[in-house]
Design a protein around this nucleic acid. Sequence first.
DNA 1: CCTTTAAATAATATATGCGTTATATAACTA
DNA 2: TAGTTATATAACGCATATATTATTTAAAGG
Lengths: 111, 111
Amino acid sequence: MQTLDSSFAALADPTRRAILARLALGETTVMELAKPFEMTQPAISRHLKVLEGAGLIVRRVEGTKRPCRLAPAGIKEIDQWLAMLRDAMAKNYDRLDVLLATMKPEDEPQP
Amino acid sequence: MQTLDSSFAALADPTRRAILARLALGETTVMELAKPFEMTQPAISRHLKVLEGAGLIVRRVEGTKRPCRLAPAGIKEIDQWLAMLRDAMAKNYDRLDVLLATMKPEDEPQP
DNA sequence: CCTTTAAATAATATATGCGTTATATAACTA
DNA sequence: TAGTTATATAACGCATATATTATTTAAAGG
């Protein structure tokens, strides 16, 4: 899926994850987001564009400012994909549990 | 965090996500994994290396084969990071609920 | 108006990622 | 031991990503 590509790619960058973590505290402007980083404003603008393109944030216009906030839909989507793996692993563990439970002592793996 | 970088970057590729989805069904060899893809074996080997480097899969040696399976630890880590965003969004919704609940009719936003 | 402030866009250099072909390694198999 | 099978590594081309500086747009405020 196209969206998962861009969502996960967006999350692969530490600056962008930090931006999301900041937005988790609430809506903020671009300049405010840029402050903590050793990086120019255009660089942050591009990161925000990537996050917006991935559907992880949304922006509104407020005069000359563009406050950003988290976009639940985008995050929900990747969460759902991961749920598949999570469930699969849980099932694998269940199978392992059954296997271990039915094993006789002499079948036990050696250390 | 270094690991989150590589984990999310690994998930950003559709071939690698498909590989993980296949592994969710159970352990498999490299050739078996390569079959469904219009791609050479070396390409798949590289994808597996990326997934292994990201801690999302583990491989064992079985003769000339290298069966792969999902690595719970790696997936748990990214899950935990996402939980932060999930919780933040839940809180933001709570705040919005409170705001809407305490708003008088004349304060309501217009369509 | 003119200046300042907030943010976006353009141009560019460097780096990284993905796939291919060709080749190497290492374990079965006849 | 020679051949085959399973996988990894090397070398290379091409596309994409990130950061920088310079410039542009647009609203605010004196």
